[in-house]
Write a protein that binds this DNA or RNA. Structure first.
Ligand SMILES: [Mn+2]
Ligand SMILES: [Mn+2]
Ligand SMILES: [Zn+2]
Ligand SMILES: [Zn+2]
Lengths: 156, 156
DNA sequence: AAGTCACGTGCAACTATGTTGCGTTAAATG
DNA sequence: CATTTAACGCAACATAGTTGCACGTGACTT
């Protein structure tokens, strides 16, 4: 499975026409393996540390991936950007769930945002995103079971 | 007008039952006068400098205002939080426009987001926000008139 | 009006995410 | 293999927001 994702990543990057580097391949592979949007920090932790990829490089790769459409950048409530691999080419109007406690972001592939929304005169709309805020399964569960815990930021 | 907004702010805060302080009144008055969502920086610039309100206090007041529902916090693409006074009690499902160039955020009071969106099992939705990304009137205009300008971050 | 006290404030130091400049490395091409 | 140039590593920086603590003040009691 790991090998497959790495191969898939390499193919996608090669397809894009740009240089195929280890950092790009590995970061994209990490995103492809993930089941939710990953922050820079998440990516660093999941990267094979033996590769020794610099944190700035990870930032630049994530930026490049979202710039060329291979990934999808989502600005979180918590001032952290998270990235999804854009396997299923995201429609111009799709939906995300954001957990207000731990920051977890997942794509809601089922739901779709309205494509046409009235904007003030002169404004030029480009993309519509539907954001559902609430608690992820983990946070909702720990909230209800362990009665009263401080609202500290979770780390799962 | 300025006096009226200050009075309105004071009344709203008094209504909330919490302490009525100069910082809270002035910050809320600034938000009430604004026609768009304001960042911490925006608020500081618009505060009468003779009041000498500390920047940390402004952060805390903005946090308190959004916490008690007198204002509405919006996380921007640019990692900056912006705040709207919640005059017209925001519905649980409303829409915002965010300019991808200068970061300007305005409430789209006309549009409404779908109230019911399917989420994964265990997830608990709380609020739905429809975000339209694009260019505000100013940015769209300067982009089309002065043909090719660098994509630097605007400051209006 | 004076006294009390918890809540709000000012200040300084700090954290965290992300960015920039620059010299070096290594993909691509032939 | 040699050349070219985009990508990388490193260090320093930028900026939004947070925290700890001493002090001041709004609201409430007397
Ligand atoms: Mn998405
Ligand atoms: Mn709003
Ligand atoms: Zn969560
Ligand atoms: Zn703009």
């Amino acid at each position: 499975m790991a090998k497959t994702m790495t191969d898939a990543a390499e193919a996608m990057i090669r397809e894009s026409g740009a240089r195929v580097t280890r950092a790009r391949v590995e970061v994209l592979a990490v995103l492809l393996k993930a089941e939710r949007a990953l922050s820079h920090h998440d990516v660093e932790r999941r990267l094979n540390r033996s590769l020794g990829v610099d944190r700035v490089t990870v930032y630049r790769v994530l930026d490049w991936l979202s710039g060329c459409g291979l990934a999808h950048k989502i600005a979180g409530e918590d001032r952290i950007s998270r990235y999804n691999a854009a396997e299923h080419a995201h429609s111009r109007a799709h939906a995300h769930f954001q957990c207000g406690r731990c920051g977890t972001v997942v794509c809601l592939d089922d739901a779709d945002a309205p494509t046409e929304v009235p904007v003030p005169t002169g404004f030029v709309p480009h993309e519509v995103v539907l954001t559902v805020k609430g608690l992820c399964a983990t946070c909702a569960h720990t909230r209800t079971s362990s009665s009263r815990h401080p609202p500290a930021r979770a780390r799962h």
